[in-house]
Design a protein around this nucleic acid. Sequence first.
RNA 1: GCCUGGAUAGCUCAAUUGGUUAGAGCACCGAGCCGAGACCUCGGAUGUCGCAGGUUCAAUUCCUGCUCCAGACACCA
Length: 865
Amino acid sequence: MNGAEYSFSEIERKWQSRWDEMGLFNADDSDRREKRYVLCMYPYPSGVLHMGHVINYTIGDVVARYSLLHGFKVLAPMGWDSFGLPAENAAIRTGVHPHRFTEDNIHRMAQQMRRAGWGYDWRREVATSHPDYYRWTQWLFLRFLERDLAFRKSAPVNWCPSCRTVLANEQVKDGGCERCGTAVEQRDMEQWFFRMSAYAQRLLDNHARLEGSWPEPVLKLQKEWIGRSEGARVHFMVAETGDHVPVFTTRPDTLWGVTFMSIAPQHPLVEKLVRGTEHEERVMAAVREMRAASTSEKDIAEREKVGVFTGFHVVNPVNGEQVQLWVANFALMTYGTGAVMAVPAHDQRDFEFARKYGLEIRPVIQSDDGMLDAAAMTEAYVEPGKMVGSGPFDGRRNLDAMADIIGWLADNGLGAAEVNYKLRDWLISRQRYWGAPIPVVYCEACGIVPVPDEDLPVVLPTDVEFSHGAGNPLETSQSFLSTSCPRCGGRARRETDTMDTFVDSSWYFLRYCDPHDEKHVFSSEAAHRWMPVDQYIGGIEHATMHLIYARFFTMVLHDLGLVDFDEPFKRLFCQGMVCKTAYYCPTHKYIPESDVAGGEREGEAIMGGRCKRCGADVTSEMTKISKSKLNIVDPDAMMDRFGADTVRLYMLSDAPPDRMQIWSENGINGAWRTINRLWSLAVEGLEKVAPLGEEPPAVLDEGNREIRRRTHQAIGRVGDAIEGGLQFNTAIARCNELLGLLRARFGEVHPAVLRETLETILKVLSPITPHLCEELWERLGHSASIFTCGWPEADPEVAAEEEIEIPVQVNGKVRARLHVSPDISRAELEQAALNDERVQRYVAGKQVVKVIVVPGRLVNVALKG
RNA sequence: GCCUGGAUAGCUCAAUUGGUUAGAGCACCGAGCCGAGACCUCGGAUGUCGCAGGUUCAAUUCCUGCUCCAGACACCA
């Protein structure tokens, strides 16, 4: 059977415009059916679709179409995270204004998206860089400000002296600016923050409601990020001056083992203490060096512990002892109180520090295996044990005593129970042009004054200069900078900081519900109608950024009375990375596969090849598709060659979608063949198929009964595969099996059975390969779109097996097979097995000890001897 | 270092609550088609279910230990 090749380009275009015309993906507010909100994380409009988008948005489209087939009204919107650095960098490089650069990219990417067959309600498209969007971002900022959830404070930040802007931690590479390479400095600057730390406990508590619906690793990452820890605040005091130095500790049981104290280089007390003393020069020099070091997480982790003795001492409140006060680079001003009691015997950090600087190590928790000897210890002892040298608590088990110790501290006015979180307040200030301006002005008389709601949006000015190293372009706009105070009318200066783009993306899913509202950020009715998102789909890299910010925003909006829920995303799915073999030559670094000569193909990789340019041995690795590894695959080129349906099918057919996907030439070819096999079988079937509406007859031969049986089984199994965790690969495998059976039985298939089977395959496959299935559906005589015709119903009677084979084991070895009805009783099955002559041959003359009967499965006869 | 996944055919993955002969796609081999090749169609072979113990009539599946791989976190007191 060799039909004409499937000509995807016309057919895909045809159906894309057909779906547009019929408004298949238009989400209707007045629709009374039950809703499904299917959302994919919107992209930054880079102008080029990459494979990560392809898998993400294909999964979303399949879920949306599957929901349509199940009769839901579906909201599947798309938009643009269109503020951000790349547009501004392009402006500096090429002189093209960020607005134009962004609009061009949006246009180009939207074209690519349509072409992939992803269905969206484009009437609801939003772009965060449009004034009618960022107006409401600013409006929300003002609500945060009113509630004291937005505030200014001084904070240490990464500062690039060449670009004259702050950088996010992820924009710092190896201690330098990712753009110009200049060494990044740490500076204290006044910045805007959102008070996210106030929501730490709630963010944590709500996890209980997300369990089971969110990937477990995401919840775990968030939990670690929030980092709740329980302990006590303990009041230390500087011996020489009487200054109070509270500390936070999770180990009050080790208070009697404190031998020194570490304090953060940024701690204000340091300067206060040493000023004008003999220690000032020495201490402040060391402090300046510590402060100048990079604040990037990675650098901090790898940095050696260093410190300097301040010359001062603190009094340990539990025993009145005086211990040395040290400035240490690992003490963080942003956690706890900025000061740490040091217990080298029972904390690894303190242990290393004490060994380096020759400070005392004093064990106060004894292991059950014997006494700890401070001089012989090679690492801190952190296991539980018995308290010693600990005043009133001597002899107690440390873990059991913990609560009593905290109670004792409180009773004696030495401290109190305290809970701390790692989660910080969210720094939202950026000294950048291409972001939503923070809507406040600085008045010479009134100070910080919010821009009134009716004056929003604060629009980005156009009279700005973009040049490298000039800092924030907004500061070059006189029209923007100088304004009048809304309160007193006097001279005022506008805030030139813009908001982190994560602010924009913390509420975009709400704007989709009511995208054109000019009076409100969104109407409560619209939010109530569509929210929360039923299925959210995106990369796991957003686990602790976007997904925490969006949850925080939703909670605040709930508290403001704008929405009646406080979790935005009911179910979350994180797709896997798309990977491909990359090749590495010692002289030329990463090289494209086309530059690998010789070698042998082993699986996906060419092993033992040489570099075409220099002849050196080439190594290979399987890694995420990226420009820098020269292993990219261009989705557009693939769609040119194979069409959207083939690319979609391939992306979903190989591995479960939350795992790594491997891109290979063979794989995409295989998907293309599958598409063509289905096409040619269906086209051939058109000549034979029963007329529209004809049901299979009641009486059929065994061959046709089996086809029907497998068809009706496939409906359930495909549905289960998709509902039970978006296992598209197994759904596709079920379809392949059915297709294989139909092909093998094509000669004797009854025309009505053929119609039923073909239509079923098309239906269940249509979310994955929509164009192909629509076309064949139409050719089978249907006038309505396949997506409006409902999911097929499986008839349990047709799907039921008529006869099953039961193996009979004698002492664990299969000796016979019985063909029986699936609903045979246990006793009947046992009798049938024992009566079987082949079984009797083995049983003859021996004693039957036990007969294990598993209905529907097997019979095992255990013999003695 | 810690946590979470994973280890099944040459490759990527499946396999109801433990139960028959462990299945798909790709790759491979053979045949058909063809002037030949490619495409296509049909057919075929292939498994110490990571290792070692344990529980059981029965373990790829459950339990324990170990090995290897991947990813995330990593001075938070």
